[in-house]
């Protein structure tokens, strides 16, 4: 996947419906249920989950304006953006990057091979970053980036833009124009009680270039 540079304001980038996004090369990403055998160690109960991975495809696109990188995700889903009862969950999405080369996406990294992900939940105004060296060591990090999210639900589809300044790192993945990294995606269908490892996942990392 490639993030082209265009001349647009941050606000325009953070608007999924903005015409600027017409210039992005969107990709259709095929999504699949997380293989829960992988989490048996950390939660044998979670590993019992079935019927997760309700979202089977996702459209992803990326742009930057030299200052901010924006990733737009769009997927069709019934809307679940409120916790209405104790057994209700909300829609969510994440993009993940390896912090060091060779970090496995399927397990969210491994000891010594951390990953960094951007999380968005439909009931939470601000997205957040996590680092992880595997499922059981997901750590939310506050105050380390300017990650922003703008989400709109329209006509049975979520339109989400996640954006963060280029260049800075502070333990998170370093994203710079002219560089390349890898990327993976996850989506949670709240209506299907998806959370944690119960999710749709794009599979192993794919290349991600941030064009100059």
């Amino acid at each position: 996947m490639k993030a082209k540079r265009i001349d647009a304001s941050n606000d325009a980038l953070l608007d999924a419906a903005s015409p600027v996004w017409a210039g992005a090369e969107g990709e259709s990403v095929s999504m699949a249920p997380t293989p829960l055998m992988l989490v048996k160690e950390v939660s044998p109960f979670l590993a019992l989950s079935q019927d997760h991975g309700a979202v089977t495809s996702l459209r992803a696109a990326a742009l930057h304006n030299g200052g901010m990188l924006a990733i737009r995700l769009q997927w069709a889903a019934p809307k679940h953006d409120r916790i209405v009862d104790l057994d209700s969950f909300v829609d969510g999405a994440a993009v993940m990057f390896p912090v060091v080369r060779g970090a496995p996406a399927a397990t969210m990294g491994a000891r010594g091979k951390p990953t960094n992900a951007w999380y968005w939940k439909a009931n939470t105004p601000a997205p957040y970053e996590v680092v992880a060296e595997g499922f059981a060591s997901v750590q939310r990090l506050a105050g380390r980036s300017d990650l922003k999210a703008a989400a709109h639900y329209r006509d049975g589809q979520w339109n989400l833009v996640l954006g963060r300044s280029l260049g800075k790192a502070d333990g998170l993945v370093k994203l710079e124009a002219g560089g390349s990294t890898k990327i993976a995606f996850a989506v949670w269908s709240g209506g299907n009680s998806e959370r944690s490892g119960r999710k749709s996942f794009s599979g192993e990392f794919v290349d991600f270039e941030i064009l100059k």
Partner: peptide, 14 residues
């Protein structure tokens, strides 16, 4: 919430 991006940190921080 994540208001600002701080100084760079090596992967070791993780």
């Amino acid at each position: 919430s994540l208001p600002s991006f701080a100084t760079a940190l090596a992967p070791g921080f993780v």
